[in-house]
Amino acid sequence: MNSWKWISAGVGSTSVLPAAWMLWHPTYTAGIILTIWSAVAALVAAWYVWRMEVRKQKVNQQNLEQSAIQTLNHHRHDWMNELQILYGYIQLGKLDKSVQCVERIKERMLQDSKISKLGLPSLVFYLHSYRTLNTGLQLDVDVVDHVQLEGKLTPSKEESFAQSIMQVIHVYQQSGSSTWEDERLLTLTFMEQGQELIAEFDGEGSFGDSDHIRQQIELAVQDRGIRVEQIHTENTTYRLCLPYVI
């Protein structure tokens, strides 16, 4: 929108000289020249805006592809570590440890599958790629009973809810600090209660003043139709509650 204002101002400024000439010498030729000049300036401006939009889309596409590659590489590295641990237990003949490792892998695969089926592409990509960000805040995601949001929220509600989740996670990232002795963990749980979608944030570790966190969370969801609830006053546990569209 701002670029259009600047371009409109530029188009107007380029027409100053021919307009002044027409006012000084109001002839048929001056009118034709002013009309052609304005049309050419408008076409050039439109071409410039189109070119900038194409360039912006290309940059965004490249950034998205790079993020996807980093996420895939990170997941591949994690799975290789799990397989190496499992292989080591098998070589040592530790059957009980091998079974525990397989169960852990199965549980993680199940949770990743549940996240992928949430139905909000931008949120799904963000949650899957979070581990590549190295923010100093560990994030665990749990989806209760295969929550699926497709068709239950309007497109605008889907986008605002996804943005709210990302912003609240950012609030926890910016609150407090982690040390070697005290690592911070944020557990995000998606669930349904009645006709509402619930996203529960449970923080473990040092997150600073809980009142400040609540203020920042309420600011993040302001005017989005999302209710904020504090579950445990002594902990930094909050819920975002959003009614379904039935």
Rank of each mutant, 00 (worst) to 15 (best):
H128V: 07
A20G: 14
E218F: 10
G136I: 06
R239D: 01
Y87Q: 15
T135G: 06
L95W: 01
I115L: 01
E181R: 14
K94V: 02
I85R: 08
I246T: 10
E234R: 12
M109L: 15
Q195I: 07
L219G: 11
L64I: 03
S129D: 04
P121E: 05
S3N: 14
N235V: 04
W180V: 15
Q111K: 07
Q173P: 05
L72D: 04
K56N: 12
S13L: 15
S15H: 02
R214M: 04
E65A: 15
L86M: 11
T29I: 11
K94Q: 12
S206G: 06
V143E: 01
V44C: 07
G31L: 13
V147Q: 00
Y130Q: 04
A162E: 03
M166P: 05
T187F: 00
G208A: 09
L95S: 14
I32A: 11
R51V: 08
W6N: 14
K56V: 13
S98H: 03
R76Q: 09
I231E: 06
I7S: 10
H75T: 03
L149G: 00
H75G: 01
E158T: 04
V124Y: 00
Y130V: 04
Y130W: 04
H212Y: 08
I226V: 09
M22N: 13
P243H: 03
G225I: 05
M22V: 13
A9C: 13
Q230D: 01
D223Q: 14
L95A: 14
S116T: 03
M80C: 05
Y89P: 00
I246L: 11
S177V: 08
V147F: 02
Q174M: 12
I246P: 12
T236F: 05
K157L: 08
E158A: 05
I226L: 03
S206P: 04
W180Y: 14
D140W: 03
S178Y: 01
G151M: 07
N81A: 13
Q148W: 02
L185W: 07
G194F: 02
K106Y: 03
I115W: 00
G176E: 00
I231M: 06
K5W: 05
S3M: 15
R104W: 02
S206Q: 12
T135M: 05
H77Q: 12
L34N: 10
I85F: 05
S178I: 02
S67K: 11
V171M: 03
P26C: 06
W24F: 15
Q148Y: 07
A162S: 15
L110A: 15
Q230P: 02
E82M: 12
S98R: 04
G208D: 04
R51C: 09
Q215C: 08
W6E: 10
D202F: 06
T135W: 02
R51T: 12
F161P: 01
A199N: 02
N134E: 12
V144L: 09
L137R: 01
T71K: 04
S122N: 09
Q61E: 14
V144Q: 10
V228A: 02
L83V: 11
D223K: 15
L153K: 00
S160Y: 03
T179E: 08
I32H: 07
V59K: 11
P18E: 01
Y48N: 09
Q173E: 13
A9Q: 12
R55H: 11
G208N: 07
D142Y: 05
W24C: 14
Q216V: 06
T187L: 06
